[in-house]
Write a protein that binds this DNA or RNA. Structure first.
Lengths: 297, 297
DNA sequence: AGAGGTTACGGGCAGCGTAAGGATC
DNA sequence: GATCCTTACGCTGCCCGTAACCTCT
């Protein structure tokens, strides 16, 4: 079957008037050009070139093919150019982000978007996942990076990263390194804001008949959660990723426990619509950056 | 580099919504499709398909590529169709032919033209080569099949066939089977019309001080030449091809001689001009038919 | 004799098909 | 468990480059 290589070779042979010239232009050998043209002529079913000594000209059929070949090759070039034309990706994308992400890979993500699509602006707002969901469905934001995936009609999701959640506490708090649920329940628990997935999870985990009522501190600010934990106010339930520094500097330490905490999965979510080009490209970048930073953990 | 196969595969995967479907459609295996898409995505530099379970849809970039791919594949199909569209080859081609050809492969040629290009009409006139040349340059005919090649600016030639020329005579004439130039010169010589290449050739061959003046009969009609020879009027100088039948039925016989007769080369000649499509196609057929009929002899 | 196109031949690599793997319903 | 895409692997066949050949100036 006729292929791009054959057409391109044909174009150059005609343009340069010689096989040898085309061979140089295309960084190959004369026999290769000869072979490609022969193959093209076979595929098409007609001789395309008259090989009179020192004078290669296209035949009637060749001239006809020439026109099409130019269009076809041009179309491919145009396609590649259009795909790579970052200036075509412009405008504003309104992005809602859960705070965890702000503290992990959001800065890298923003840099990458600005690098790849300098004509694209990001408007970023940070909120808890449930709020983001509402704002997304109200079309007040274009994308949300939140705890997901969300289920709603026309809503598309893309998994971005998972974070392991666990108990951390200041060494000053003297929590046993390996604590069962009863031991943990005796400390105040500090975690995300009310209505968030982790908050509800923690609540349900400790809401057992055999456990005393626990003190549950909730904060919409991650920094506050960390700060309270470092100050020894209680045990924080938080993705490890957010307290890497504190763990390293021994301001906080990991508490092993028999409480099984599921991972937190973060998704990009957006509304399906005819032109979500910019949105999808932004999601692509998010997926890549998030994957690079935290390859599933 | 992006190739037709990749684009075509992509089109079918999107159209059918599955790799498996595309594999069946394209008579190959699912892994092959998977590989081609992966390759295409590599070449283009973006993911083109979202592989969510049971739901394959193009990405933003994929939709963009889709449009180009359709155009490109369509263009190729259009090209192939146009090249094969015999109804596009229509009109009248005025053809001038030397009589020798009329008696050899012209009927086959006409049949072939009519078969391949039923919408094309041939207007044929028969004349001696010098007249054809004049008429060609005057643009009164579009192509000439004549003794050539011709040299004139803008004139293009294509070799069609060669004919061996020799002496033939009726057995009744009692010409020695092997005759030297002196013996031959004692008989009347019958050949082509005045001003033609063979006539001039014969004249020059026998125009020697050591030879008597010869009787040279010239006829613009080949049939007349043959008839005169069969009737024993003289020795004919004629392409063997034209008297195959007479040689077989012993009405004429070959005379071997020390006179070296060069071959007659017949060419198609036509005037270069922007649209010589039909003309060139006709020449192609002539070259093929002449080659088949008389592969250089 | 030299330039340029074609043909012949051997090697490397891409692409295919089979088969196993993995994910989702 | 079934379905469908992906990955692994061995193989075939194509395409390329080297070299010899042919043709025309």
């Amino acid at each position: 079957m006729v292929d791009f290589k054959g057409l391109e070779t044909f174009l150059w042979v005609v343009a340069l008037g010689s096989f040898k010239g085309a061979a140089q232009k295309l960084n190959t050998t004369q026999p290769a050009i000869s072979h490609r043209i022969a193959q093209l002529e076979n595929d098409i079913g007609f001789k395309l070139l008259t090989r009179e000594a020192r004078n290669i000209t296209p035949t009637a059929r060749g001239r006809q093919v020439l026109g099409y070949a130019e269009k076809i090759i041009g179309m491919r070039a145009e396609m590649m150019a259009a795909l790579r034309d970052v200036s075509a990706i412009r405008g504003i994308v309104r992005l809602g982000v859960a705070e965890t992400i702000v503290h992990t890979w959001l800065p890298d993500f923003i840099k990458e978007v600005n690098r790849l699509y300098p004509y694209l602006s990001l408007e970023i707002e940070v909120d808890i996942s449930p709020s983001l969901r509402t704002r997304l469905l109200a079309q007040e934001i274009d994308i949300a990076f939140l705890l997901g995936p969300l289920t709603a009609p026309l809503l598309r999701n893309r998994l971005l990263c998972h974070y392991e959640v666990g108990f951390v506490a200041s060494p000053a708090l003297k929590v046993p390194k390996s604590a069962n649920v009863h031991q943990l329940a005796s400390f105040p628990i500090i975690t995300f804001a009310r209505k968030t997935q982790p908050y509800e999870l923690v609540k349900s985990l400790f809401n057992r008949p055999d456990l005393p009522a626990i003190k549950l501190h909730a904060s919409a600010s991650m920094a506050t959660v960390v700060h309270l934990a470092v100050e020894g106010i209680g045990v924080a339930v938080i993705p490890y990723q957010l307290v890497k520094e504190e763990l390293k500097s021994r301001k906080l330490e990991l508490i092993h426990s028999d409480v099984r905490m599921p991972q937190l999965s973060f998704c990009a979510s957006w509304l399906e619509s005819p032109d979500t080009m910019a949105v999808e490209l932004v999601v692509d970048i998010a997926a890549r950056v998030a994957g690079d930073k935290a390859p599933s953990g």
